[in-house]
Amino acid sequence: MAPENQKTAFATVGTTSFDALVDQLISKDFLQTLHEQDYQRLVIQYGRGITEPQSRIVHGVEVRAYRYKPSIREDLENADLVIGHAGAGSVLETLTLNKRLLVVVNETLMDNHQAELAEEFASQGFLHWTTVSKLPTVFPALDWRNIKKYQPGKPELFAQYIDDFFGI
């Protein structure tokens, strides 16, 4: 991790679009909040979104953005905070790297069962979650001290069960 005053936030929306979140992130107010929280960089992976954030420096926060990369691993590793959508892939990858994760749920998606995962993991203390409209008020007040270390699942139990089933 970078020194305390050079923190990096990484936002990812996965393979879909989530313009409401991206618009919120690049608003002057939010960048000001990031600056107050000692963040110096904000990297945004904005997927299929219409909003194309420009590279620039606002309130001392350097904004960089791209649509896709074959792997977002490097950006996750370099981040002090990950702001993600509720997609299981990015949630698990971020938590496996033991990064602070704030999941922003897309309220406009119908049948948004993905919020279930964020809600469940938040109740187990692995992450924080919020909605786009609540982000500006929730973000500065987040308490990261009581976030628990992520407990990964046990795929070996699955493999064992299948072995027993086939008898091999």
Partner: peptide
Amino acid sequence: GGHTAEALCL
């Protein structure tokens, strides 16, 4: 949407 990552993990 996460299916591939989960399937590969298993």
